[in-house]
Design a protein around this nucleic acid. Structure first.
Lengths: 136, 136
DNA sequence: TATTGTTATACTCTATAACTATA
DNA sequence: TATAGTTATAGAGTATAACAATA
């Protein structure tokens, strides 16, 4: 049930993201960096559950459009310090608002109790480390 | 949250499926046919949200292993009537039991109220036609 | 030598289009 | 001609491996 639902929700959010000129991964990256800047790209990749090679193109694009900053760390120039620009923060906030409005319309279909249980269950299960899910 | 969770759950169920020699799609097909036999492959594909070409290899394999029957409809020999064999029913039941046991262990982490809300919310949202999800 | 990021390559999954057979 | 199923092909998304820069 969850996998098809995830697909449907992704499909539902795609028009919203396109309207804000962001790919799904770009939005995920902005969301992660909005929570806190990262010292390396590998750390960002881990945080969002992506391969480190997967996000390079995304970062290239976001940087080119001035939504993120990506500078070599002066202390260790192998690393790239990542953070949102002011424009990036604005883009993230407006996109997130649009997505939340859409989610709100869907959650309105649920009873208050189910809704709360659903969101709490998602948080609990998402917070589990993968080993615990696999191991049961 | 839902998409990564779905990925994690899929990954968690994979060892169980492998132990029963079934792919994810094979299991989905068996589950659909356990509910009710289908008159055409296209109907099955629609029912499980897959492309009609996607399931052909799956059906080939299941038929070869004697888990499903797939016979031309005498009334219209273009169509293939699909149904589980006795062995297919057994395979489905034992695999489903193993998967449910694993799900049970995960759901045990939730409070009773959250758990009920979570499952009901999943049912409600999954039952929504795609248009309503996209349209909001 | 070990690590960060990058590029190039291969692999998996899925969808599209062309084909066969029945009607 | 239209439909069910099949096959072959191409596309997107992802992961793996080799490479360059820095430590």
């Amino acid at each position: 049930m969850i996998v098809p639902l995830g697909r449907a929700l992704s499909a539902a959010e795609e028009p919203v993201l396109r309207a804000h000129d962001l790919s799904m991964w770009a939005y995920i990256v902005l969301t992660a960096l909005a929570e806190r800047p990262m010292r390396t790209q590998a750390a960002l990749a881990r945080a969002i559950g992506a391969d480190k090679t997967r996000i390079i193109g995304v970062l290239d694009d976001l940087q080119e459009r001035g939504l993120i900053q990506r500078r070599p760390d002066p202390a260790d120039r192998r690393m790239r310090v990542l953070s949102l620009t002011a424009a990036g923060q604005r883009a993230h906030r407006s996109t997130q608002a649009a997505i939340r409005a859409r989610e709100e319309r869907l959650l309105a279909r649920l009873g208050a109790a189910d809704r709360q249980g659903f969101l709490r269950a998602l948080q609990v299960l998402s917070a589990l480390p993968p080993e615990e899910i696999v191991g049961g």
